[in-house]
Each structure stands twice: as C-alpha cells, then as structure tokens.
Design a protein around this nucleic acid. Structure first.
Length: 582
RNA sequence: CGGGGUGUAGCUCAGCCUGGUAGAGCGCUGCGUUUGGGACGCAGAGGCCCACAGUUCGAAUCUGUGCACCCCGACCA
C-alpha cells in the first residue's frame, strides 16, 4: 500500500478523551475513530489488524473442529423471553421494534439463537458432538463504555457453542476450546492467565476467564504466589486468617455509644477487628418477577472480612440484592450500627460466613442503639440458616488451594471466557436428539466467547514504547514498512524504491510504502507510531552503496542488507518473528 | 444510576472571573528553499464558540434547562 493513497492520518498529540496507552496509540496511529461513546470505526490500519486477529481465531477454531456459521445480529425478543433473559439482561439489551411493531433485540450474545438453530437442525446422536462458532458484531448498551476498545457498546466477538451427548463429551469440547484459546492468545502476542470465574446464577460447574494482566484493567483477580491458583475475586476461595481458640465465655452487654462501625468498635474496645462480627443486611428480589415479595437476608462475616455479594447471590439462586431500607430494618427489629443476629426476627434469613463458625467470643451488636454484646458464639446465642463461604478474598489472605501460598491481587482485562453451560438453554428451547436406544436426550452445552477488539487493545497495551505501537508480527497491519527518503531529488532511487515495493509484494510480503514527499523525521516518526515490525529504509546514500537498511521495530541495531537479498532477508525475518509467537 | 470533570478550528488548548469585531501551537492548501529523526520563509483556507431559552443596547463570556464526551463508583449471561 502506498501511503500517498492511504486513508487515515497519524496524530502528533493524543486526543484528550484517551487515557490508556492502547486507546491513545490506536487513535494516534489512525487505527480507529470514535463515532460515539463506546462505538468506533475501524480505519484501514485497524481493520487490517482486526482481520489478522480474526484469521488466527478462525484457524484455531477450525483446527479444534469447530464449524463456522453466521447468525443474525437482529433477533426477535420472544426468544429472550423464552430463555428468561429479557428481564435479566435489563437495560444492557438494545431493543427495537419493526414496522409491524414486533419487539426485537440486537444480539448481545447468541445462546438463544444457536440453541434454537440446533434444535431445528439436529435430530439424533449422530449430530453431536458439534461446536458452532461465529465472528459477529454484538450489541450491549453498557452503562459506561471505557478504555477505548476495552468496553464498548458495539463490538466483535468470536462466540462458540458446543453441544454434546453427555458430561464426558462436554469435557472434551470444553478442553478443545480451552487449548485453542491458549494458542490464540499466544499467537496474538497477548499473555493471558486462565482464572477461575464465577459462573453466576446460570449454573454450570466450570467457568474460566482468560485475563490479560494490566493495571488498566477493570477486573480484579487474586493469584497465589505459590501454587498459581488464580481466580476472579468474585469467585476466589481463601483460608480465613485464624484466631486463637478460646473457651466460650459468658455473654456480656457493653455500652458503646456512637460506635457504629467495625473500625470504631475495635478501637473503642481495644480489640482487633477479627474479634468482632460484622452484620450486613439486604433485601433479595427476583430479577424475573418484580411483583414477588423481597426476602430479608442478614449476613454475618468476621469484622476483618467483607461480604462477597456474588457468592451471596449464588446462594440465593441469582436474586438481586439491595440494601435494606431503614423502614425495613426497623420492621425486623434490626438497629443499623448495632445490628445483631442474636434474637433476630424469624422471618429473616441469616447467612453466616465460615469464619464466624471458627471464631469464638466475638463482639456483636445488640440490636439496641449504643450497645454491643461481648462473647457471642454461633449456635449458642443464635442460629444460621446457612453457613457458607460468603466473604471476599483480599490480598494477604492464604490460598485455599495449596493452603500455603499468599494471595495477591492484580488488575486485568477479560479477553475470553470459556463456560460449561449445562442444560439451561437446551432445555428452554427443547433441543433434543435421539440416542442409540431411540430415547430423547437433551444435549449439554458449553459456550466460549472471545473479544476480538479486546485482543487488539491488549496487544497494543502489551507492546508499545514511547515512540508508538510495536505490533506482534502475527497481527501487524503490514509486514514491512518501506520508507523511501528524498524521492523528489533522486529519480533513480525513486524508481528503485518502486521496484523494491513491487518485488517485496511479489515475495508475499504485505508492504506499507511511504512514498510521500515528506522529511525523514516525519516518515520515521510515523513508522515508529504505526509500529510495523520490520522497517526498510531506502535512501540515496544506501542506494549508491547497493544496500537498504532493515530495522526491527521491537529493538536492536539496524542491518545493512545487499539490495539483491532484501526480499529473502525480509521473508526470513518475518518467519523468525512469527515463530517466536508460537 | 450516584459522584466529579470537560464542551471554542482537524488535534492540543488559551480567551470566560471583569460582556464590546474569534485567538495560539500543531495539522491542512499553494509557491519557493530544504531532505537520515516531527525543517524554514511567504501567502492562504478553515468557526452555528454543544443546543435551546433567558438577562442585556450588546453574550464564547452572566443565568437556567437540556445534550454530548471523559474519569471514579455501581452494573457487567
């Protein structure tokens, strides 16, 4: 491609709207252009990268045995009602109406469509296992788009769905996708760690997110420094910091005026927070049925821990949680600031973290303003409906997996997600196949998402320097950036540069040819910003010496390569860069 | 949805407090000089100052109401 025929310009300064390196550089290089919040145009530069990523995804999906299809982005709303997600998706679902006033939705994902498709096509066990995938535009009306391509409202996702006869089949399908994902991210130059993720109310026994670790990320994960256990904080298990055993002591009321927080209480009594019980109370509501009565839930965790609302929500079967209003807490005899599970109203469901069961003689509230109780013990002063893991893992906690390592936290961006779905959708859409015995069987499903735009953002975030992007060779918009200097002055050089461009293209290389009449500084700076892996400089000086200069964007010294060997040299250099990505 | 911030040239921003003919740098166009790391001179083009409604003789500037965008949080099958 000749730059004189190119569309999209480089920017010397980053637009004010961009904060992260990936966002700034993609804008400055002229790869993307924002139309509105969370909606971007891909310019020729970015589009070439996107097609490279998609090609890698296709290769690995096909190699894993998946079959590519293309489903509609526009969907009838009734399939969302059938799966029960029309309400659950809430405002994130883009809705519209056709001219016959039929309610429609723009697909935020395609479980409904694919399951209906499978149900209409598949008839017998001979039709499974099958994994279908597509590369599709998804629409989600995100409350807050952010980070350039990281969280957007219209985006490209590779989504795959597997259908298997049984759990063992799902194991194989899921495993194949898991391995394919590892290869895709490695080949795209985006390091990821698979972390255990919450599978939500939707169920399923295993769900993993592929996280690219970056301080610019919006997800928080915990990682064990010893065994490598990695999990989303929502899901992470941990060992509660132990407290010394004690014999149960007698309950003793204490006057604690104006002491409504754990911090204040611990300071007032001169005890560590782990000697206190923290109470948090919610109303649980049914997201599918606004008219259903809300259920009061009272959660107790040790004072040094925090409530993990995702774990709590899973216990409650996916209900939404909101804080109890003052009127509601008053109606159950709960006194905020002095709330206590002791003597609580029987209508309230009491959920206790496992930390409480092993921590004797805690200071808890008394449900009387200005008063707490010392030496409260579970099963003696009060009883719990549930004793579960309902606390949030934090940095410094001990790993539950190996029991020895210490958990640390890190930020990251979710690049992909593999998920054992189970039977939810196949049952909702009555997808059945006949088995060998002639019995109707419901297939078990898995789903596997991968954010193409995020892979691009992650690749840039991972590979850049103060001068610009350093594209991984596998997804670079071009293989070679041919920079010709002083074309206007040296007709012989100009004709040789044109010839070189033709020659490199004929050798199978994708070449961006800077044939503009600009100064060397402008050209070199643009080349650095755009970040093509190999830069070839043709100048009068080199031309006279019968060489060109080759520089790798990633670093190192330039090589002077004899003119006759340039094409083969570059083909080899490109192969070398690609092989480093696996 | 809560909190904060910003809307002026393609980009980065001044001007607003204290109302009186729309500004700078970069970029863009033409001519000339330059040419291995964002050159220089000369001449130009480019604006509904986010929108609407007020106040005023007069509004980019003051007031109100919207809208958009960004950041933090909530949310994120």
């Amino acid at each position: 491609m000749r730059m004189t025929r190119w569309f999209g310009r480089t920017l010397r300064e980053a637009p004010a709207e961009a904060e992260t390196a990936s966002h700034q550089l993609l804008l400055r290089a002229g790869a993307i252009d924002q139309l509105m919040a969370g909606v971007y145009t891909y310019l020729p530069l970015g589009w070439r990268v996107k097609r490279k990523v998609e090609a890698i995804v296709r290769e690995e999906m096909d190699a894993a045995g998946a079959l590519e299809i293309h489903m509609p982005a526009i969907q009838p709303l009734d399939i969302w009602e059938r799966s029960g997600r029309a309400d659950a998706m809430g405002p994130v679902l883009f809705r519209l109406t056709d001219q016959r006033e039929r309610p429609l939705a723009l697909g935020p994902t395609h479980e409904e469509v694919v399951t209906q498709l499978f149900a209409s096509q598949a008839q017998s066990y001979r039709d499974v296992p099958v994994t279908l995938y597509q590369i599709q535009t998804k629409f989600r009306d995100e409350a807050r788009p952010r980070g350039g391509l990281v969280r957007v409202r219209e985006f490209t996702m590779k989504d795959a769905y597997s259908f298997d006869a049984d759990e063992a089949g799902l194991d194989a399908s899921y495993g194949a996708m898991f391995e394919a994902y590892k290869r895709i991210f490695a080949r795209c130059g985006v390091p990821t760690v698979p972390v255990e993720a919450d599978s939500g109310a939707i169920g399923g026994k295993e769900s993993r997110e592929f996280i690219y670790l970056s301080d610019t990320g919006e997800d928080t994960i915990v990682i064990c420094d010893r065994c490598g256990y990695a999990a989303n904080t929502e899901k992470a298990e941990f060992v509660r910091p132990p407290v010394p055993p004690e014999e149960p002591l007698e309950v003793e009321p204490i006057e604690t005026p104006g002491t409504t927080t754990i911090e204040a209480l611990a300071a007032f009594l001169g005890v560590p927070a782990s000697k206190t019980a923290k109470a948090v109370f919610y109303m649980a509501t049914d997201p599918h049925d606004a008219s259903a009565a809300a259920e009061p839930v009272f959660v107790v965790v040790r004072g040094d821990l925090q409530v993990n609302e995702v774990k709590l929500r899973n216990l409650l079967g996916g209900k939404d949680l909101r804080p109890m209003t003052d009127a509601e807490s008053a109606s159950y005899g709960i006194v905020p600031g002095y709330a206590s599970p002791v003597g609580i109203d029987e209508r309230v469901r009491v959920v206790v973290d496992t930390s409480i069961a092993t921590s004797p003689n805690l200071v808890a509230g008394a449900n009387v303003a200005g008063r707490h109780l010392r030496n409260v013990n579970l099963s003696r002063e009060y009883h719990a409906h549930d004793v579960i893991d309902v606390a949030l893992a934090e940095a410094g906690h001990t790993c539950a997996r190996c029991g020895e390592g210490t958990l640390g936290t890190a930020r990251g961006i979710e690049m992909g997600h593999v998920f054992r779905l189970g039977y939810i959708y196949s049952e909702a859409f009555e997808a059945r196949v006949l088995d060998e015995a002639g019995e109707q069987r419901t297939p078990i499903m898995g789903c596997y998402g991968l954010g193409v735009d995020r892979v691009i953002a992650g690749a840039v975030q991972e590979h850049y320097d103060e001068r610009g992007i350093i594209w991984p060779a596998s997804i670079a918009p071009f293989d070679v950036h041919l920079v010709a200097l002083g074309l206007g002055r040296d007709a012989e050089l100009a004709s040789d540069a044109d010839a070189l461009y033709t020659e490199l293209t004929a050798a199978g290389l994708e070449v961006l040819y800077d044939d503009r009449d600009d100064s060397p500084g402008v050209k070199f700076n643009d080349a650095d910003l755009i970040g093509v892996p190999l830069r070839v400089t043709a100048s009068s000086r080199n031309h006279k010496a019968g060489v060109v200069e080759v520089l790798r964007r990633a670093g190192g010294d330039p090589d002077l390569v004899p003119r006759a060997e340039v094409a083969s040299y570059l083909v080899a250099a490109r192969a070398e860069l690609l092989s480093a990505l696996g």
